[in-house]
Simulated assay, not measured.
Amino acid sequence: MNTFKRYCLTAAIAAATVVNTHAADIVDTAVGAGSFQTLVAAAKAAGLVDTLKGDGPLTVFAPTDDAFAKLPEGTVETLLKPENKAKLAGILAYHVVPGKVMAADVVSVTGAETVQGQQVDVKVDGSTVMIDGATVVKTDIDCDNGVIHVIDSVILPADKNIVETAVGAGSFKTLVAAVKAAGLVETLSGDGPFTVFAPTDEAFAKLPEGTVESLLKPENKQKLIDILTYHVVSGRVYSSDAVAAKTAKTLQGSSLTVNVGDSGATINNAGLVSTDIDSSNGVIHVIDSVLMPPAKGANAQGIIHGAIAQGSQLFNAGHHEACADLYTQTMHTLMDADLEPTLQHHLTSVMENARTQHCPTTRAWTLRRGMDQMYAQLASK
Results as ranks from 00 to 15, higher is better:
H319W: 10
Q329G: 02
S214W: 02
Q357A: 05
S274E: 13
G264F: 12
R355Y: 02
S289A: 14
K223S: 07
L326Y: 01
A300T: 12
G271S: 11
I308Q: 12
E219R: 05
N316E: 15
H231P: 13
I277W: 08
A245T: 09
M335W: 04
K296A: 09
C323F: 03
A300V: 13
K221A: 05
T266P: 14
C323E: 04
Y230G: 01
G271L: 09
L326K: 00
G282L: 03
G318I: 07
D276Y: 02
E219W: 02
T247C: 00
K296Q: 11
L339C: 05
H332G: 06
H320N: 12
T356P: 13
G297N: 13
S289T: 11
L343N: 11
M331N: 03
I267P: 05
K223F: 04
M292S: 05
L347H: 01
D336N: 08
L314C: 15
Q222P: 08
L339N: 09
G311N: 12
V290C: 11
N269K: 08
A265D: 11
H319K: 14
K246Q: 08
N220D: 14
D288G: 00
T275K: 05
V258L: 15
S240A: 01
D325V: 01
V232K: 07
K296M: 14
H320R: 11
H319I: 12
Q252W: 10
A354C: 10
Q357W: 05
K249S: 09
A245C: 01
Q310M: 09
V286Q: 05
H358W: 08
G302A: 05
A337H: 06
G253T: 03
G302N: 10
H285L: 00
F315D: 07
A307P: 01
T229L: 09
I303H: 08
D336L: 09
H346D: 06
H231N: 13
K217E: 02
Q222C: 09
T356D: 15
Y238H: 14
D336Y: 05
T348D: 09
D278Y: 07
L343W: 07
N220W: 09
H320M: 09
A265K: 03
A270E: 07
M331L: 11
G282A: 07
L334E: 01
M292H: 09
Q329C: 01
S349C: 02
S263R: 13
H332P: 02
D278Q: 13
I284L: 15
N220P: 10
H320C: 11
S214R: 08
L256V: 14
T342Y: 12
A300S: 15
